[in-house]
């Protein structure tokens, strides 16, 4: 059988990569995709734990997370489209009309 720690490590690596991407990427869409990567890491953790614990609850949580991710994607991409209409750019550095 696959050790739980290996699955969790995979999950943590994906989560960290997503978080790192969130910080270093500059394109809004890529940044958003990094968030999706993080959510997937969470899902993997849920599935891994669901394997170890009695009951299917962990699998159901993944189901809910996927639904939420879909809702978030719809709204997020709409926001990004509106951003592009206003500025003709997707670079996150350009989102700076308000400064200290």
């Amino acid at each position: 059988m696959i050790p739980l720690s290996h699955i969790l490590l995979l999950s943590v690596i994906l989560f960290t990569l997503g978080a790192a991407g969130f910080i270093i990427r500059r394109n809004v869409i890529t940044v958003f995709m990094c968030i999706e990567l993080m959510l997937n890491a969470v899902n993997l953790a849920f599935i891994a734990f669901a394997r170890r614990l009695p009951g299917l609850d962990g699998q159901l949580f993944v189901f809910f997370v996927i639904v939420v991710a879909a809702a978030e994607a719809a709204v997020g991409l709409a926001i990004i489209v509106a951003l592009y209409r206003n500025r003709n750019s997707l670079a996150i550095d350009d989102v700076d009309s308000m400064k200290l």
Partner: peptide, 30 residues
């Protein structure tokens, strides 16, 4: 600052997970 912090987080997390569930703790229930 972010990436080094995250790297630290990754290592820390890895070590803790390793300690808790070990190398062989199979991820299996009935």
């Amino acid at each position: 600052v972010g990436p080094p912090l995250l790297l630290a987080f990754l290592v820390e997390f890895g070590v803790i997970v390793w300690k808790q569930y070990g190398l062989t703790g199979a991820a299996s229930a009935p």
